[in-house]
Design a protein around this nucleic acid. Sequence first.
DNA 1: TGTACATCAGTGAACGCGCGTTCACTGATGTAC
DNA 2: TGTACATCAGTGAACGCGCGTTCACTGATGTAC
Lengths: 220, 220
Amino acid sequence: MSWSRQGGRSGPRGYHHGNLKEALIRAALELIAQKGPAGFTFAEAARWAGVSPAAPYRHFRDRDELLIDVARRGFDQFEAVLARAWDDGRPDAFAALDRMGKAYLQFARSEPAYYSAMFEAGIPPEASPELRDGAERALAVLRTAVERLIATMPVRDRPPVLMMTLHIWAVSHGIASLFGRGDSARRSLPMSPEDLLEAAVLIYLNGLGFTVSPTAGRPA
Amino acid sequence: MSWSRQGGRSGPRGYHHGNLKEALIRAALELIAQKGPAGFTFAEAARWAGVSPAAPYRHFRDRDELLIDVARRGFDQFEAVLARAWDDGRPDAFAALDRMGKAYLQFARSEPAYYSAMFEAGIPPEASPELRDGAERALAVLRTAVERLIATMPVRDRPPVLMMTLHIWAVSHGIASLFGRGDSARRSLPMSPEDLLEAAVLIYLNGLGFTVSPTAGRPA
DNA sequence: TGTACATCAGTGAACGCGCGTTCACTGATGTAC
DNA sequence: TGTACATCAGTGAACGCGCGTTCACTGATGTAC
């Protein structure tokens, strides 16, 4: 299938595409998913969108600018997905954090192209302010959750928020990268990535002195 | 600088390179370190080695075969580095595991090209039996360490070896990927990747019920 | 020790290909009056 | 409501480039006798 001339219902069909910018983004996502962030070219994205190779230059300065835009959109969606899973900590912070972990892995699996662009394409966060902001906002969702968890502890036992945030992020990213997607998922594991992450976080929280309520799920 | 015709002391200098295979590997490492696994081409590796573009075909069927060989060598070195850090668990398993964590991060940092080829180039482990074996052997070093740690626990409290191995691997890889190298290391962190990893592992071990001896270092 | 010869590891020219990028252009759209 | 015109968003042809790969070749090396 091709995304050409699909600028919404009854979009214009003639000389003008009508929604080329979006179509190029979609093409890039498809190509990145197939061949990785490096295996996508401006020319091929144009072909996918059913447009001449010069057309993309009306919307992006170059290939990099398109990639950065993909990564930025990825962080936006990532933030939304995490925030939805967190659901303001309902019914309790432990259950909500657990849900967020699953959402993290699910995002990496179902949106490999976004995930690649965000974390594996080698785009520095300084590439654009919007990109940096997007990444910050996504991380902030996790940090908020961690703050809420920490708030349940006696003051003198509380770990540093940022350290704990980075720990949870790192183990989530590690599991997603190593076991969560495509080929790597083929590794024979004793448990699903979701269970692996859940167990890791429970053990980690236990190690910090949290008493995890039973609604947070059971470690495998 | 160029690696051409450096086949050891007083290598042959004329028509034959003498050590082209090694020179191509070195060129690939240099190029991968500079531009990522995708930004390395057969032709450029040949140029680096001071040789015609057709020459590499005497040693590798194609670009992929070279990349796979780089990844395989990477796992071999990785195994050696981890095993050396582990040092058969001396003076005790906790201190040795801690050392291994630092060695893990150090490897990712000092050998970014190997690390990329091993984990980020998208080479499936089935690409070659040697590659698969190399990866297995590297992981086995970590598993052995974990087994030794677990053996210090009362039988009824012991966690599954493989689960614990994968947890430690995942958090190490997560920290290395997100914070350990090049650009990503620029993120402003409250602590070094080494300290971050050490703290994570200590908290995790604590969560499993380990009583960590003071020689294993202090969490930050 | 010398010679003939097989094998090995390179050369260098050539090819087709797809990419990135530019250019003058043109069809479509929207707006002022 | 109609018309003139500016602007926008495409076209398509062209370019130079580097890559991957093949090919007949040749210089260097090693070995049998």
